[in-house]
Design a protein around this nucleic acid. Structure first.
Lengths: 111, 111
DNA sequence: TTGCGTAATCGTATATTTGCGATAAACAAA
DNA sequence: TTTGTTTATCGCAAATATACGATTACGCAA
């Protein structure tokens, strides 16, 4: 990729919002988060049974969610129990509700 | 990419949430949306002046936002005036606020 | 018609993402 | 120690995304 000479500057908020968005930009990761956020709460690799994908692929998506800080995992050999990382979940809640404000005055261009 | 034999099924809501998320998964697109959503409202290619990126790159990002349905453009030769597409903006508002509920009962695993 | 300004598209190069199977790692139980 | 269970990581291939310059397209004004 032919990289720009000077880097575009982004605010911390823009960067982290983009990172959260990227984490949930794949439907299977949304599905996983929904499962973890549901009342059953702390789930594990039963995900592999619920989602028809290779175990390695599920693990890869879990890693993406981990890296984004949206989930956390407790190693409980030989299993790993995952759940929502509430700290960053709340951060994401705030960032997105700040951005997507339904009562925001929007353009009324008659396009 | 070695595709799965059987396709994973996603709900319409999961699909469109992922699509919206992908659209805002790049900080420059968040920046653009912020500019368009700000009171100045209907913006155009002044974006090219505000954001130090090649014109073609900006146009590419605008197309991504267009394809996601988050913005719309009015051709006003030789310019194009963009603004938020409120219909889908509201849809995104609802989808994200439904997903990121701060008062949701989350796991209290002591990880 | 010819040029000008604006914006989209093309072509290209590189980076990242996505998916799989195979393998490795970590621990518990036999 | 060996075996089994669970999960992460590796290596690969293909698809997408990102960025640029160059070119094209489209009206408007000379």
């Amino acid at each position: 990729m032919q990289r720009s000479l000077f880097k575009v500057e982004y605010s911390e908020e823009e960067e982290s919002m983009a990172a959260f968005a990227k984490a949930i930009s794949h439907p299977v990761r949304i599905k996983i988060l929904k499962l973890l956020a549901s009342q059953e709460c702390c789930f594990t690799g039963e995900l592999t049974e619920l989602i028809p994908m290779a175990q390695s692929t599920i693990s890869q998506h879990l890693k993406a969610l981990l890296d984004a800080g949206l989930i956390q995992g407790e190693i409980n050999p030989p299993k790993v129990r995952y759940c929502i990382k509430s700290e960053n979940w709340l951060k994401a809640c705030h960032i997105f509700s700040d951005f997507f404000k339904p009562d925001q005055p929007l353009c009324d261009c008659p396009i």
